[in-house]
Write a protein that binds this DNA or RNA. Structure first.
Lengths: 239, 239
DNA sequence: GCAGAAATTTGACCTGCATCAATACAGAAA
DNA sequence: TTTCTGTATTGATGCAGGTCAAATTTCTGC
Protein backbone atom coordinates (compact mmCIF):
# COMPACT_ATOMS: atom_id res chain seq x y z
CA UNK A 1 0.00 0.00 0.00
CA UNK A 2 1.42 3.34 -1.08
CA UNK A 3 0.73 6.60 0.65
CA UNK A 4 1.31 9.69 -1.41
CA UNK A 5 1.11 13.14 0.04
CA UNK A 6 1.47 15.39 -2.96
CA UNK A 7 -0.95 18.24 -3.32
CA UNK A 8 -4.18 17.47 -5.08
CA UNK A 9 -7.01 19.67 -6.20
CA UNK A 10 -10.71 19.01 -6.54
CA UNK A 11 -11.00 22.26 -8.41
CA UNK A 12 -9.54 20.84 -11.56
CA UNK A 13 -10.42 17.18 -11.13
CA UNK A 14 -12.31 15.80 -14.07
CA UNK A 15 -14.73 14.07 -11.71
CA UNK A 16 -15.91 17.26 -10.07
CA UNK A 17 -19.34 17.02 -11.63
CA UNK A 18 -19.96 13.59 -10.11
CA UNK A 19 -17.95 13.55 -6.95
CA UNK A 20 -17.74 15.57 -3.75
CA UNK A 21 -17.32 18.99 -5.43
CA UNK A 22 -20.64 18.68 -7.27
CA UNK A 23 -22.56 21.94 -7.07
CA UNK A 24 -19.93 23.91 -5.20
CA UNK A 25 -18.90 27.39 -6.28
CA UNK A 26 -15.36 28.61 -6.75
CA UNK A 27 -14.79 29.62 -3.15
CA UNK A 28 -16.21 26.39 -1.79
CA UNK A 29 -14.17 24.38 -4.24
CA UNK A 30 -11.00 25.98 -3.08
CA UNK A 31 -11.82 25.21 0.53
CA UNK A 32 -12.50 21.63 -0.45
CA UNK A 33 -9.02 21.42 -1.92
CA UNK A 34 -7.73 21.87 1.61
CA UNK A 35 -9.95 19.14 3.01
CA UNK A 36 -8.81 16.65 0.42
CA UNK A 37 -5.30 16.65 1.73
CA UNK A 38 -3.89 13.49 0.25
CA UNK A 39 -4.41 10.73 -2.20
CA UNK A 40 -3.77 7.12 -1.63
CA UNK A 41 -3.09 4.34 -4.09
CA UNK A 42 -4.59 0.94 -3.50
CA UNK A 43 -3.51 -1.84 -5.78
CA UNK A 44 -5.70 -4.64 -7.00
CA UNK A 45 -6.71 -7.03 -4.25
CA UNK A 46 -5.66 -4.76 -1.41
CA UNK A 47 -8.05 -3.29 1.12
CA UNK A 48 -8.56 0.42 1.62
CA UNK A 49 -10.04 -0.25 5.03
CA UNK A 50 -11.16 -3.26 6.96
CA UNK A 51 -13.97 -4.12 9.33
CA UNK A 52 -12.86 -2.90 12.75
CA UNK A 53 -10.39 -0.30 11.51
CA UNK A 54 -10.61 3.03 13.25
CA UNK A 55 -12.65 5.45 11.17
CA UNK A 56 -11.07 8.76 10.29
CA UNK A 57 -11.83 9.57 6.70
CA UNK A 58 -14.19 9.24 3.82
CA UNK A 59 -12.68 8.31 0.49
CA UNK A 60 -13.58 9.62 -2.94
CA UNK A 61 -12.64 7.15 -5.63
CA UNK A 62 -10.51 8.85 -8.26
CA UNK A 63 -9.66 5.86 -10.39
CA UNK A 64 -10.34 2.18 -10.13
CA UNK A 65 -13.11 0.00 -8.84
CA UNK A 66 -13.96 -1.25 -5.36
CA UNK A 67 -16.20 -3.74 -3.65
CA UNK A 68 -17.39 -3.37 -0.09
CA UNK A 69 -18.28 -6.47 1.87
CA UNK A 70 -19.33 -7.59 5.31
CA UNK A 71 -18.74 -11.05 6.64
CA UNK A 72 -20.63 -13.06 9.23
CA UNK A 73 -18.69 -14.50 12.17
CA UNK A 74 -18.74 -17.93 10.53
CA UNK A 75 -17.06 -16.57 7.44
CA UNK A 76 -19.84 -16.11 4.95
CA UNK A 77 -19.22 -13.01 2.88
CA UNK A 78 -21.79 -10.57 1.55
CA UNK A 79 -20.76 -8.02 -1.03
CA UNK A 80 -22.75 -4.89 -0.18
CA UNK A 81 -21.79 -2.82 -3.18
CA UNK A 82 -19.48 -2.08 -6.09
CA UNK A 83 -18.11 1.45 -6.31
CA UNK A 84 -16.51 3.33 -9.16
CA UNK A 85 -14.83 6.67 -9.84
CA UNK A 86 -16.54 9.65 -8.28
CA UNK A 87 -18.30 7.63 -5.59
CA UNK A 88 -17.72 8.08 -1.88
CA UNK A 89 -16.95 5.18 0.44
CA UNK A 90 -16.39 4.87 4.15
CA UNK A 91 -19.78 6.15 5.37
CA UNK A 92 -20.31 2.92 7.32
CA UNK A 93 -17.62 3.99 9.78
CA UNK A 94 -19.33 7.10 11.12
CA UNK A 95 -21.75 5.42 13.55
CA UNK A 96 -19.27 3.65 15.71
CA UNK A 97 -15.98 5.34 14.78
CA UNK A 98 -14.95 1.98 13.38
CA UNK A 99 -15.46 0.64 9.92
CA UNK A 100 -18.09 -2.00 9.57
CA UNK A 101 -17.03 -3.57 6.31
CA UNK A 102 -14.03 -4.17 4.09
CA UNK A 103 -13.33 -2.06 1.03
CA UNK A 104 -11.27 -4.00 -1.50
CA UNK A 105 -9.84 -2.66 -4.75
CA UNK A 106 -10.90 -4.82 -7.70
CA UNK A 107 -8.37 -3.08 -9.90
CA UNK A 108 -5.51 -0.70 -9.19
CA UNK A 109 -7.13 2.35 -7.71
CA UNK A 110 -6.52 5.76 -6.31
CA UNK A 111 -8.67 7.52 -3.74
CA UNK A 112 -8.81 11.02 -2.33
CA UNK A 113 -8.63 10.96 1.44
CA UNK A 114 -11.09 13.28 3.16
CA UNK A 115 -10.62 13.40 6.94
CA UNK A 116 -14.16 13.34 8.25
CA UNK A 117 -13.55 15.94 10.94
CA UNK A 118 -12.55 18.35 8.18
CA UNK A 119 -15.58 17.46 6.10
CA UNK A 120 -17.79 18.20 9.09
CA UNK A 121 -16.04 21.45 9.82
CA UNK A 122 -16.44 22.61 6.27
CA UNK A 123 -20.06 21.45 6.23
CA UNK A 124 -20.78 23.80 9.10
CA UNK A 125 -19.39 26.66 7.10
CA UNK A 126 -20.95 25.86 3.74
CA UNK A 127 -24.60 24.80 3.65
CA UNK A 128 -24.22 23.61 0.06
CA UNK A 129 -21.57 21.11 1.09
CA UNK A 130 -23.57 20.12 4.16
CA UNK A 131 -26.58 19.34 2.02
CA UNK A 132 -24.40 17.46 -0.42
CA UNK A 133 -22.95 15.24 2.29
CA UNK A 134 -26.45 14.52 3.54
CA UNK A 135 -27.57 13.66 0.05
CA UNK A 136 -24.69 11.28 -0.44
CA UNK A 137 -25.58 9.40 2.73
CA UNK A 138 -29.26 9.38 1.90
CA UNK A 139 -28.52 8.11 -1.59
CA UNK A 140 -26.66 5.21 -0.07
CA UNK A 141 -29.68 4.42 2.10
CA UNK A 142 -31.97 4.49 -0.93
CA UNK A 143 -29.58 2.29 -2.90
CA UNK A 144 -29.54 -0.20 -0.05
CA UNK A 145 -33.33 -0.30 -0.07
CA UNK A 146 -33.18 -1.17 -3.74
CA UNK A 147 -30.78 -4.02 -3.02
CA UNK A 148 -33.16 -5.31 -0.34
CA UNK A 149 -35.93 -5.33 -2.92
CA UNK A 150 -33.69 -7.29 -5.29
CA UNK A 151 -32.67 -9.80 -2.66
CA UNK A 152 -36.06 -10.18 -1.06
CA UNK A 153 -38.40 -10.23 -4.02
CA UNK A 154 -36.65 -10.76 -7.32
CA UNK A 155 -35.67 -13.92 -9.11
CA UNK A 156 -32.20 -14.67 -10.44
CA UNK A 157 -32.84 -13.28 -13.92
CA UNK A 158 -34.37 -10.10 -12.58
CA UNK A 159 -31.45 -9.57 -10.23
CA UNK A 160 -28.85 -9.96 -12.93
CA UNK A 161 -30.77 -7.77 -15.37
CA UNK A 162 -31.06 -5.03 -12.74
CA UNK A 163 -27.38 -5.39 -11.94
CA UNK A 164 -26.27 -5.00 -15.55
CA UNK A 165 -28.58 -2.06 -16.20
CA UNK A 166 -27.37 -0.30 -13.08
CA UNK A 167 -23.76 -0.87 -14.01
CA UNK A 168 -23.96 0.46 -17.57
CA UNK A 169 -26.04 3.39 -16.43
CA UNK A 170 -23.35 4.42 -13.95
CA UNK A 171 -20.57 3.79 -16.46
CA UNK A 172 -22.42 5.81 -19.04
CA UNK A 173 -22.61 8.75 -16.60
CA UNK A 174 -18.81 8.56 -16.59
CA UNK A 175 -18.52 8.74 -20.33
CA UNK A 176 -18.33 5.03 -21.14
CA UNK A 177 -20.44 3.09 -23.55
CA UNK A 178 -24.03 2.47 -22.69
CA UNK A 179 -23.92 -0.99 -24.22
CA UNK A 180 -20.49 -2.45 -23.63
CA UNK A 181 -18.69 -3.07 -20.39
CA UNK A 182 -15.91 -5.04 -18.81
CA UNK A 183 -16.83 -6.52 -15.47
CA UNK A 184 -14.29 -5.84 -12.80
CA UNK A 185 -15.57 -8.56 -10.51
CA UNK A 186 -15.77 -12.34 -10.62
CA UNK A 187 -18.95 -14.35 -11.02
CA UNK A 188 -18.64 -15.24 -7.37
CA UNK A 189 -18.57 -11.57 -6.34
CA UNK A 190 -21.56 -10.78 -8.52
CA UNK A 191 -23.32 -13.74 -6.95
CA UNK A 192 -22.46 -12.62 -3.46
CA UNK A 193 -23.88 -9.18 -4.17
CA UNK A 194 -27.04 -10.60 -5.72
CA UNK A 195 -27.59 -13.42 -3.26
CA UNK A 196 -26.97 -16.24 -5.70
CA UNK A 197 -24.24 -18.80 -6.35
CA UNK A 198 -21.60 -18.28 -9.00
CA UNK A 199 -22.96 -21.15 -11.07
CA UNK A 200 -26.35 -19.48 -11.19
CA UNK A 201 -24.76 -16.21 -12.27
CA UNK A 202 -22.93 -18.02 -15.05
CA UNK A 203 -26.04 -19.91 -16.17
CA UNK A 204 -28.09 -16.72 -16.21
CA UNK A 205 -25.46 -14.98 -18.33
CA UNK A 206 -25.56 -17.93 -20.70
CA UNK A 207 -29.34 -17.82 -20.83
CA UNK A 208 -29.38 -14.11 -21.68
CA UNK A 209 -26.76 -14.82 -24.28
CA UNK A 210 -28.75 -17.65 -25.88
CA UNK A 211 -31.76 -15.37 -26.03
CA UNK A 212 -29.71 -12.77 -27.87
CA UNK A 213 -30.13 -10.19 -25.14
CA UNK A 214 -26.45 -9.87 -24.42
CA UNK A 215 -23.15 -11.12 -25.73
CA UNK A 216 -20.75 -12.41 -23.10
CA UNK A 217 -17.16 -13.42 -23.25
CA UNK A 218 -15.81 -13.87 -19.76
CA UNK A 219 -15.64 -10.42 -18.22
CA UNK A 220 -16.63 -8.62 -21.38
CA UNK A 221 -20.34 -7.99 -21.85
CA UNK A 222 -22.23 -6.32 -24.66
CA UNK A 223 -25.85 -5.44 -24.20
CA UNK A 224 -27.67 -6.11 -27.45
CA UNK A 225 -31.25 -5.55 -26.29
CA UNK A 226 -31.40 -3.12 -23.37
CA UNK A 227 -35.20 -3.08 -23.61
CA UNK A 228 -35.35 -6.81 -23.11
CA UNK A 229 -33.27 -6.44 -19.97
CA UNK A 230 -35.56 -3.68 -18.72
CA UNK A 231 -38.54 -5.88 -19.45
CA UNK A 232 -37.07 -8.70 -17.39
CA UNK A 233 -36.28 -6.41 -14.52
CA UNK A 234 -39.57 -4.61 -14.64
CA UNK A 235 -42.23 -6.15 -16.88
CA UNK A 236 -44.71 -3.39 -16.04
CA UNK A 237 -42.69 -0.59 -17.51
CA UNK A 238 -43.56 -1.93 -20.95
CA UNK A 239 -47.17 -2.86 -20.34
CA UNK B 1 -54.67 11.95 10.09
CA UNK B 2 -54.50 14.49 12.88
CA UNK B 3 -52.11 17.39 13.01
CA UNK B 4 -51.51 18.85 16.42
CA UNK B 5 -49.57 22.00 16.94
CA UNK B 6 -49.22 22.23 20.68
CA UNK B 7 -45.84 22.98 22.11
CA UNK B 8 -43.62 20.00 22.70
CA UNK B 9 -40.26 19.67 24.36
CA UNK B 10 -37.39 17.27 23.79
CA UNK B 11 -35.88 18.55 27.01
CA UNK B 12 -38.27 16.58 29.16
CA UNK B 13 -39.15 13.76 26.79
CA UNK B 14 -38.57 10.36 28.31
CA UNK B 15 -36.93 9.19 25.08
CA UNK B 16 -34.19 11.79 25.18
CA UNK B 17 -31.53 9.21 25.93
CA UNK B 18 -32.38 7.25 22.78
CA UNK B 19 -33.70 9.77 20.35
CA UNK B 20 -32.49 12.94 18.69
CA UNK B 21 -31.49 14.74 21.92
CA UNK B 22 -28.99 12.04 22.86
CA UNK B 23 -25.77 13.56 24.12
CA UNK B 24 -26.87 17.19 23.88
CA UNK B 25 -26.28 19.62 26.73
CA UNK B 26 -28.87 21.94 28.25
CA UNK B 27 -28.41 24.76 25.79
CA UNK B 28 -28.48 22.47 22.78
CA UNK B 29 -31.53 20.70 24.09
CA UNK B 30 -33.41 23.93 24.37
CA UNK B 31 -32.53 24.86 20.81
CA UNK B 32 -33.75 21.45 19.69
CA UNK B 33 -37.10 22.18 21.32
CA UNK B 34 -37.53 24.92 18.73
CA UNK B 35 -36.65 22.64 15.84
CA UNK B 36 -39.18 20.02 16.90
CA UNK B 37 -42.06 22.35 16.29
CA UNK B 38 -44.98 19.97 16.13
CA UNK B 39 -46.14 16.48 16.72
CA UNK B 40 -48.32 14.47 14.49
CA UNK B 41 -50.57 11.54 15.26
CA UNK B 42 -50.77 8.69 12.80
CA UNK B 43 -53.34 6.04 13.47
CA UNK B 44 -52.90 2.36 12.76
CA UNK B 45 -52.74 1.56 9.08
CA UNK B 46 -52.20 5.13 7.97
CA UNK B 47 -49.08 6.37 6.24
CA UNK B 48 -46.84 9.06 7.65
CA UNK B 49 -45.38 9.63 4.21
CA UNK B 50 -45.53 7.90 0.88
CA UNK B 51 -43.17 7.20 -1.95
CA UNK B 52 -43.08 10.32 -4.09
CA UNK B 53 -44.19 12.73 -1.36
CA UNK B 54 -42.21 15.91 -1.16
CA UNK B 55 -39.57 15.65 1.55
CA UNK B 56 -39.53 18.33 4.19
CA UNK B 57 -38.97 16.71 7.56
CA UNK B 58 -37.48 13.91 9.50
CA UNK B 59 -39.68 12.24 12.07
CA UNK B 60 -38.78 11.02 15.53
CA UNK B 61 -41.14 8.30 16.69
CA UNK B 62 -42.56 9.18 20.07
CA UNK B 63 -45.00 6.34 20.47
CA UNK B 64 -46.11 3.50 18.25
CA UNK B 65 -44.51 1.29 15.69
CA UNK B 66 -43.87 1.77 11.98
CA UNK B 67 -42.84 -0.20 8.95
CA UNK B 68 -41.13 1.31 5.93
CA UNK B 69 -41.54 -0.34 2.57
CA UNK B 70 -40.67 0.12 -1.06
CA UNK B 71 -42.64 -1.42 -3.89
CA UNK B 72 -41.59 -2.42 -7.36
CA UNK B 73 -43.58 -1.05 -10.30
CA UNK B 74 -45.34 -4.41 -10.67
CA UNK B 75 -46.61 -4.22 -7.13
CA UNK B 76 -44.28 -6.44 -5.17
CA UNK B 77 -43.63 -4.98 -1.77
CA UNK B 78 -40.44 -5.11 0.26
CA UNK B 79 -40.49 -4.10 3.90
CA UNK B 80 -37.18 -2.34 4.49
CA UNK B 81 -37.48 -1.91 8.24
CA UNK B 82 -39.53 -1.79 11.40
CA UNK B 83 -39.11 1.29 13.58
CA UNK B 84 -40.02 1.93 17.18
CA UNK B 85 -40.04 4.79 19.69
CA UNK B 86 -36.93 6.93 19.65
CA UNK B 87 -35.96 6.01 16.11
CA UNK B 88 -35.73 8.50 13.26
CA UNK B 89 -37.43 7.96 9.93
CA UNK B 90 -37.55 9.89 6.69
CA UNK B 91 -33.84 9.83 5.83
CA UNK B 92 -34.62 8.27 2.46
CA UNK B 93 -36.11 11.56 1.30
CA UNK B 94 -32.98 13.68 1.50
CA UNK B 95 -31.31 12.58 -1.74
CA UNK B 96 -34.01 13.56 -4.15
CA UNK B 97 -36.22 15.85 -2.04
CA UNK B 98 -38.88 13.19 -2.41
CA UNK B 99 -39.54 10.21 -0.22
CA UNK B 100 -38.53 6.90 -1.65
CA UNK B 101 -40.66 4.60 0.46
CA UNK B 102 -43.86 4.44 2.45
CA UNK B 103 -43.91 4.73 6.23
CA UNK B 104 -46.97 3.01 7.67
CA UNK B 105 -48.04 2.99 11.31
CA UNK B 106 -48.53 -0.57 12.56
CA UNK B 107 -50.24 0.76 15.65
CA UNK B 108 -51.53 4.16 16.67
CA UNK B 109 -48.49 6.36 16.76
CA UNK B 110 -47.23 9.82 17.38
CA UNK B 111 -44.16 11.39 15.80
CA UNK B 112 -42.22 14.57 16.38
CA UNK B 113 -41.86 16.53 13.16
CA UNK B 114 -38.39 17.93 12.56
CA UNK B 115 -38.21 20.17 9.48
CA UNK B 116 -34.96 19.13 7.86
CA UNK B 117 -33.91 22.68 6.99
CA UNK B 118 -34.03 23.47 10.70
CA UNK B 119 -32.10 20.34 11.58
CA UNK B 120 -29.43 21.38 9.11
CA UNK B 121 -29.32 24.91 10.41
CA UNK B 122 -28.92 23.74 13.96
CA UNK B 123 -26.31 21.18 12.88
CA UNK B 124 -24.21 24.01 11.57
CA UNK B 125 -24.34 25.71 14.93
CA UNK B 126 -23.80 22.67 17.15
CA UNK B 127 -21.14 20.16 16.16
CA UNK B 128 -22.53 17.63 18.64
CA UNK B 129 -25.86 17.59 16.87
CA UNK B 130 -24.16 17.51 13.49
CA UNK B 131 -22.19 14.45 14.48
CA UNK B 132 -25.31 12.87 15.89
CA UNK B 133 -27.24 13.33 12.65
CA UNK B 134 -24.35 11.82 10.73
CA UNK B 135 -24.25 8.89 13.11
CA UNK B 136 -27.95 8.27 12.71
CA UNK B 137 -27.62 8.12 8.93
CA UNK B 138 -24.53 5.96 9.12
CA UNK B 139 -26.25 3.60 11.54
CA UNK B 140 -29.02 3.15 9.02
CA UNK B 141 -26.46 2.28 6.36
CA UNK B 142 -24.85 -0.29 8.64
CA UNK B 143 -28.24 -1.76 9.53
CA UNK B 144 -29.04 -2.09 5.84
CA UNK B 145 -25.77 -3.94 5.29
CA UNK B 146 -26.84 -6.38 7.98
CA UNK B 147 -30.15 -6.93 6.24
CA UNK B 148 -28.31 -7.60 2.98
CA UNK B 149 -26.28 -10.24 4.78
CA UNK B 150 -29.47 -11.82 6.11
CA UNK B 151 -31.18 -11.80 2.73
CA UNK B 152 -28.17 -12.84 0.70
CA UNK B 153 -26.58 -15.49 2.85
CA UNK B 154 -28.81 -16.74 5.64
CA UNK B 155 -31.38 -19.49 5.70
CA UNK B 156 -34.94 -19.07 6.93
CA UNK B 157 -34.22 -20.14 10.50
CA UNK B 158 -31.22 -17.87 10.77
CA UNK B 159 -33.18 -14.92 9.44
CA UNK B 160 -36.00 -15.36 11.90
CA UNK B 161 -33.66 -15.92 14.83
CA UNK B 162 -31.76 -12.75 13.95
CA UNK B 163 -35.01 -10.87 13.59
CA UNK B 164 -36.30 -11.90 17.01
CA UNK B 165 -33.01 -11.20 18.74
CA UNK B 166 -32.80 -7.77 17.17
CA UNK B 167 -36.35 -6.96 18.17
CA UNK B 168 -36.06 -7.91 21.84
CA UNK B 169 -32.72 -6.20 22.06
CA UNK B 170 -34.24 -2.93 20.88
CA UNK B 171 -37.30 -3.35 23.06
CA UNK B 172 -35.10 -4.07 26.03
CA UNK B 173 -33.23 -0.81 25.43
CA UNK B 174 -36.62 0.84 25.84
CA UNK B 175 -37.32 -0.78 29.16
CA UNK B 176 -39.33 -3.77 27.96
CA UNK B 177 -38.75 -7.41 28.73
CA UNK B 178 -35.77 -9.11 27.20
CA UNK B 179 -37.70 -12.32 26.75
CA UNK B 180 -41.31 -11.47 25.98
CA UNK B 181 -42.70 -9.42 23.13
CA UNK B 182 -45.83 -8.72 21.18
CA UNK B 183 -45.25 -8.54 17.47
CA UNK B 184 -46.76 -5.49 15.90
CA UNK B 185 -46.59 -6.88 12.39
CA UNK B 186 -48.21 -9.76 10.52
CA UNK B 187 -46.44 -12.90 9.38
CA UNK B 188 -46.61 -11.53 5.89
CA UNK B 189 -44.80 -8.33 6.89
CA UNK B 190 -42.13 -10.29 8.73
CA UNK B 191 -41.78 -12.44 5.64
CA UNK B 192 -41.51 -9.44 3.37
CA UNK B 193 -38.75 -8.00 5.54
CA UNK B 194 -36.88 -11.29 5.70
CA UNK B 195 -37.39 -12.33 2.09
CA UNK B 196 -39.58 -15.33 2.79
CA UNK B 197 -43.25 -16.23 2.43
CA UNK B 198 -45.69 -15.96 5.32
CA UNK B 199 -46.14 -19.73 5.42
CA UNK B 200 -42.41 -20.16 5.90
CA UNK B 201 -42.42 -17.62 8.70
CA UNK B 202 -45.23 -19.49 10.39
CA UNK B 203 -43.57 -22.86 9.95
CA UNK B 204 -40.31 -21.55 11.32
CA UNK B 205 -42.07 -20.13 14.38
CA UNK B 206 -43.69 -23.53 14.88
CA UNK B 207 -40.37 -25.29 14.53
CA UNK B 208 -38.71 -23.06 17.14
CA UNK B 209 -41.71 -23.66 19.35
CA UNK B 210 -41.52 -27.46 18.99
CA UNK B 211 -37.85 -27.30 19.88
CA UNK B 212 -38.69 -25.40 23.05
CA UNK B 213 -36.72 -22.35 21.97
CA UNK B 214 -39.68 -20.00 22.03
CA UNK B 215 -43.33 -20.03 22.96
CA UNK B 216 -45.65 -18.49 20.39
CA UNK B 217 -49.29 -17.62 20.52
CA UNK B 218 -50.16 -15.56 17.49
CA UNK B 219 -48.48 -12.19 17.97
CA UNK B 220 -47.25 -12.94 21.45
CA UNK B 221 -43.78 -14.48 21.65
CA UNK B 222 -41.75 -15.59 24.62
CA UNK B 223 -38.10 -16.42 24.19
CA UNK B 224 -37.27 -19.41 26.34
CA UNK B 225 -33.74 -20.11 25.16
CA UNK B 226 -32.06 -16.94 23.91
CA UNK B 227 -28.77 -18.81 23.61
CA UNK B 228 -30.31 -21.32 21.26
CA UNK B 229 -31.49 -18.47 19.06
CA UNK B 230 -28.04 -16.93 19.09
CA UNK B 231 -26.57 -20.29 18.18
CA UNK B 232 -28.89 -20.59 15.20
CA UNK B 233 -28.11 -17.09 14.03
CA UNK B 234 -24.41 -17.43 14.60
CA UNK B 235 -23.12 -20.93 15.35
CA UNK B 236 -19.57 -19.66 15.72
CA UNK B 237 -20.25 -17.45 18.69
CA UNK B 238 -20.60 -20.59 20.82
CA UNK B 239 -17.79 -22.63 19.36
C1' DG C 1 -73.98 -11.85 21.16
C1' DC C 2 -73.23 -13.10 15.73
C1' DA C 3 -71.37 -12.84 10.82
C1' DG C 4 -67.85 -11.96 7.89
C1' DA C 5 -63.13 -10.77 7.16
C1' DA C 6 -58.45 -11.25 8.16
C1' DA C 7 -54.63 -13.67 9.99
C1' DT C 8 -52.49 -17.93 11.17
C1' DT C 9 -51.41 -22.71 11.00
C1' DT C 10 -50.63 -26.97 8.74
C1' DG C 11 -50.38 -30.34 4.96
C1' DA C 12 -49.19 -31.89 0.19
C1' DC C 13 -46.76 -31.00 -3.67
C1' DC C 14 -43.55 -28.44 -6.86
C1' DT C 15 -39.75 -25.65 -8.57
C1' DG C 16 -35.84 -22.51 -8.79
C1' DC C 17 -31.74 -22.45 -7.28
C1' DA C 18 -28.00 -24.82 -4.65
C1' DT C 19 -24.85 -28.42 -4.62
C1' DC C 20 -21.60 -31.57 -6.47
C1' DA C 21 -18.67 -32.63 -10.19
C1' DA C 22 -16.22 -32.43 -14.44
C1' DT C 23 -14.29 -29.79 -18.02
C1' DA C 24 -12.72 -25.67 -20.46
C1' DC C 25 -10.51 -21.41 -20.64
C1' DA C 26 -7.35 -17.36 -19.74
C1' DG C 27 -3.73 -14.94 -17.63
C1' DA C 28 0.81 -15.27 -15.11
C1' DA C 29 5.14 -17.23 -14.20
C1' DA C 30 8.90 -20.12 -15.57
C1' DT D 1 6.34 -22.39 -25.45
C1' DT D 2 4.45 -25.13 -21.15
C1' DT D 3 2.62 -25.42 -16.74
C1' DC D 4 0.05 -23.66 -13.07
C1' DT D 5 -3.69 -21.38 -10.96
C1' DG D 6 -7.72 -19.02 -10.67
C1' DT D 7 -12.01 -18.38 -13.15
C1' DA D 8 -15.88 -19.76 -15.87
C1' DT D 9 -19.04 -22.95 -18.05
C1' DT D 10 -22.07 -26.81 -18.17
C1' DG D 11 -24.40 -31.07 -16.63
C1' DA D 12 -26.75 -34.08 -13.15
C1' DT D 13 -29.12 -34.29 -8.96
C1' DG D 14 -31.17 -32.68 -4.41
C1' DC D 15 -33.61 -29.80 -1.29
C1' DA D 16 -35.20 -25.40 1.05
C1' DG D 17 -38.58 -22.83 0.62
C1' DG D 18 -42.40 -21.51 -2.58
C1' DT D 19 -47.14 -22.55 -4.05
C1' DC D 20 -51.69 -24.18 -3.55
C1' DA D 21 -55.22 -25.52 -0.51
C1' DA D 22 -57.93 -26.28 3.52
C1' DA D 23 -58.90 -25.81 8.34
C1' DT D 24 -58.69 -22.96 12.49
C1' DT D 25 -58.35 -18.92 15.24
C1' DT D 26 -58.76 -14.07 16.06
C1' DC D 27 -60.49 -9.59 15.05
C1' DT D 28 -64.11 -6.22 13.68
C1' DG D 29 -68.37 -4.24 12.85
C1' DC D 30 -73.05 -4.63 13.69
Amino acid sequence: MLLETYKVACSNCNLRELCMPMGLNQEELQKLDDVVATRRKVSQGETLYRNGDYFTSLYAIRTGFFKTCVSSPDGREQVTGFQMAGEIIGLDGITSDHHNCNAVALEDAEVCVMPFADVEEMSREFPVLQRHVHKIMSREIVRDQGVMMLLGNMRAEERLAAFLLNLVQRLNARGFSRSELVLRMTREEIGSYLGMKLETVSRTFSKFSEEGIIEVKQRWVKILKPDALKRIFDPECFS
